[in-house]
Design a binder for these strands. Structure first.
Lengths: 152, 152
DNA sequence: ATAATAATAGTTTTATTTTCTAATTATAAT
DNA sequence: ATTATAATTAGAAAATAAAACTATTATTAT
């Protein structure tokens, strides 16, 4: 679909706070409540807005230990790739997993409580997956920026 | 705050879909609408729920080129670190930035339309920041997993 | 046991979302 | 330019949900 400036502004507003009422959005955009309503429905129906979610503060739930794991497979056969990806998706500590170009095959973002839990994740979950050649982990010292809002 | 099983289940539900009505949540949790309402308000007031946002599908807005950039500073003085972090926060292509242990200082997740835009990002935005020693970029071939929902 | 506190259910009020209809604006074809 | 068509918008009404309030039931501490 093609976006006009109002759509872009609307998406920006909804990406920063989806609990705003249509009335508030209408005021911010200089439109009527119905016009806003229709635009939002269109964005939802076209799959532009995937979902609405609550974001939870890591610190308040004691999950402050964030690690990035590079993972290399022993081989790059279709079979190994499919299996690895299927298994890694199931691990709840893995919030993100990307297949990457470069020295390593995958980059995982892992979130746990502490180093002990991370050890458990590595020993009992990640490396339990077959065909992993090597891993290399880095630990987060500080989260400088983290947003889910993409600039349209 | 301390969470009981109901709070955990409620957070899980809200992290996957925050547009569910309290009635639907009440049904899923076996509580009254008011009880759900009060629990949500408590989670909001205690800062457990940071915000509610709309998630936008990258593919529908043509921002499918994702890169991870490792950045090393020339020095690690307080001054350089503060300046770098302040500037990198301003760059809209940078969705995430982490200060990391290990060989490189920072890991950035960058989202743009294509390689041309990435080049522009590198030349005119990232490396315009002072005190950057070296960078190393990897490109996303495939997004295997990406969730904002943390298991409580 | 009893008072104090917290959590929950039900009811009412308020606000918001959704639907409907009509009017306006933009787009394309003649 | 003018008409036809589609898309977008506004306003009103209906439906639904959120929020506030009151009463009741558990829980905890003394």
């Amino acid at each position: 679909m093609n976006f006009d400036q109002i759509d872009k502004k609307l998406l920006k507003l909804l990406q920063s706070d989806s609990k705003q009422t249509n009335k508030a959005l209408a005021h911010a955009l200089g439109l009527s409540v119905t016009a806003v309503f229709e635009r939002i429905k269109k964005l939802e129906n076209n799959g532009v807005i995937k979902s609405y979610v609550a974001l939870v503060d890591k610190k308040t739930i004691e999950k402050t230990f964030v690690a990035f794991c590079h993972v290399k497979l022993v081989q790059h056969s279709q079979d190994y790739v499919v299996k690895f990806e299927r298994e890694v998706k199931k691990i709840e500590e893995v919030l993100e997993c990307y297949h990457l170009s470069g020295d390593y095959d995958y980059l995982l973002k892992v979130i746990v409580e502490d180093m002990e839990e991370f050890r458990d994740f590595m020993v009992n979950k990640l490396t339990k997956i077959d065909h992993i050649g090597s891993t290399h982990s880095m630990f987060m010292i500080n989260e400088v920026k983290h947003t889910t809002a993409i600039t349209i």
